[in-house]
């Protein structure tokens, strides 16, 4: 069983409730949470500077899109998944073919196991 134990996961999500839930779940899974981060500047800083094993990225942060941070992560070869209410799957797949998209509301279990897969 893939675990997220001892993994450092960057959590980018601007909706407080959703951020809280995900944070709790990650913590329950034994992971360490970087964030939750709610805006792009902070996300960029984290993506560049923090030690991260994987990331969960919400796409719309207020009015900004998370993609600059995603690109940084991709450059750092840090795997990530998208977790969003946006449904432009094709576009995402084109730009980030390796990143899975989980549409809100999500089956959190699935999200976490998917993340674990990435890290395996």
């Amino acid at each position: 069983m893939k675990t997220l134990a001892k993994r450092r996961i960057l959590l980018v999500e601007d909706e407080a409730f959703i951020a809280m839930e995900l944070e709790d779940m990650l913590l329950d899974a034994g992971a360490e949470v970087v964030g939750p981060v709610a805006d792009l500047p902070t996300a960029l800083a984290a993506a560049e500077g923090e030690e991260i094993d994987a990331a969960i990225l919400d796409i719309m942060l207020g009015r900004e899109e998370v993609f600059p941070a995603a690109t940084v992560l991709a450059t750092r070869q840090v795997p990530f998944v998208f977790h969003s209410a946006h449904a432009e799957a094709d576009k995402l797949r084109k730009r980030y073919p390796d990143a899975a998209l989980y549409s809100k509301p999500v089956d959190t279990e699935a999200l976490l196991s998917g993340l674990a897969e990435l890290l395996a």
């Binding site: 839930e21 709790d24 509301p105």
Partner: peptide, 20 residues
Amino acid sequence: NHRVKNLFTVIISMLSLAAR
């Protein structure tokens, strides 16, 4: 659409958190 999805997600999160 986005907002609705988001709201649902929030509500679900709300529920999960509250349940804890």
